[in-house]
Amino acid sequence: MSDDTTHFGFEKVKTTDKARRVADVFHSVAAKYDIMNDLMSGGVHRIWKRFTIEMSAARPKQKILDIAGGTGDLSYQFSRIVGPEGLVVLADINDSMLSVGRDRLTDRGVAGNIEYCQADAQYLPFPDNTFDCITIAFGLRNVTDKDLALRSMFRVLKPGGRLLVLEFSKPTNPVMEKMYDQYSFKILPFMGKVITNDADSYRYLAESIRMHPDQETLLSMLEDAGFSDCEYHNMTSGVVALHKGLKP
């Protein structure tokens, strides 16, 4: 694939068009995003995110960046951990998702130690060595240049800080993989049509998962970006993986 083309799901598109196409998807699904997450995963996404919080080793007074933070599931938990002397930045490239996240966290009484930032993961608008921890949950697969984004995350992490990438991955069980394919390409678009009146966006989400690097490839990408002590943990038979890397 040439430098001026990339994948949008299974479709080949101009690199300059991908961000707009992804933005259209999330503008469309933002209002019903949380409902669909619960329905799509049977609520299991909450367990995946809880494990991410545990692996973050977040502590009071820390600064944490939640990239592609969407409706704020992780940011809410981090705000409780870092306390009034800490800071959580909920960042998302999509203003519709950011708006839903801001409203949702405000309704839950979160204030004082959280900021909101519309930002592209490839070009994070923060000084070097700013954050103790960075998370990106179900967002990396939508980034046009993942290597560039990982280097950007590395730059804004403090030495000793950690990156956590929670993302759909490649199932390790052949039976699970077959069931997952049937679910992704038959049931998921149908649910999207019924709940959000948008089957195409959920068809794209299923395709984007298949185009995302597998566990070992993403591990190598973290190492190439400069991270050390890289590892990953499969969950739900590899349907989801949590990758971790430290900044030396």
Rank of each mutant, 00 (worst) to 15 (best):
T6I: 06
K12S: 15
D17Q: 14
A19S: 11
A23E: 09
V25K: 06
S28V: 06
V29H: 08
G43K: 06
R46V: 03
W48P: 04
K49E: 11
K49S: 12
S56H: 04
A58D: 04
P60K: 14
K61F: 11
K63A: 04
K63W: 12
L65Y: 13
A68Q: 06
G70M: 11
D73M: 08
R80E: 15
D95P: 09
S96C: 14
G101W: 02
R104P: 07
T106F: 10
G109Y: 06
A111D: 03
Y116C: 08
L124D: 07
F126M: 09
T130Q: 14
F131V: 14
F131S: 12
T144R: 11
K146P: 00
L150K: 00
R151M: 00
S152I: 00
G161D: 03
R162L: 04
E167Y: 14
K170Q: 13
P174H: 01
P174Q: 01
P174R: 00
K178W: 09
K178L: 12
M179H: 09
D181Q: 12
S184E: 00
I187K: 07
I187V: 14
P189Y: 14
K193M: 08
I195M: 08
D198E: 08
Y202V: 09
R203Q: 13
H212T: 08
D214R: 15
Q215E: 07
T217M: 13
T217N: 13
L218M: 10
M221L: 04
L222K: 06
A225V: 01
F227M: 06
S228P: 01
S237I: 04
A241Y: 02
A241W: 02
G245F: 09
L246C: 13
K247E: 04
